[in-house]
Write a protein that binds this DNA or RNA. Sequence first.
DNA 1: GCCATGATTGTTTCC
DNA 2: GGAAACAATCATGGC
Length: 155
Amino acid sequence: MKGAKGKGATKRDALKPVDDKKVGKKKAVGKGKAKGGKAEKDPNKPKRPPSAFFVFLEEFRVTFKKENPNIKAVSAVGKAGGEKWKSMSASEKAPFEAKAAKRKSEYEKQMNAYNNKQDDDADEESDKSKSEVDEESGQENADVDDDEDDDEDDD
DNA sequence: GCCATGATTGTTTCC
DNA sequence: GGAAACAATCATGGC
């Protein structure tokens, strides 16, 4: 029953029209595969930060695999994760949203550096002699206190 | 052998 | 403002 999303009612639901599966798009270009040949965008461009749902999914995958070592299909994890996500209360989602917010902050910084580099890159065209090492040091680690606040450990 | 797909929701980005 | 693309994951199938 792929129509499971009946409950969704999210925007994607509205655009799910044709498609059969993922709106006809999905990772076609994702993962930087750039299969089509075009796309290609910018390999240096920072990837989007995972949303609260994705942060939750990361942990959920581990739990799911433990309980279902036989099930390795990502679709199964996605479905189960989606259902549980909806069943979770705001309080339970809070820690995941906090992590997502933190990653988003880092993403913004990376985007800032990326945009800065883009502008610099344009200038570099006239002065391509210099190497782009400074941007590398620009992003450095950005690790900050990292996550590690999984105090929710249910069970 | 390698890339796309499958499913989920949220966020971001572009027009 | 809305619509579309993309973020992770991994086994599997198709070319």
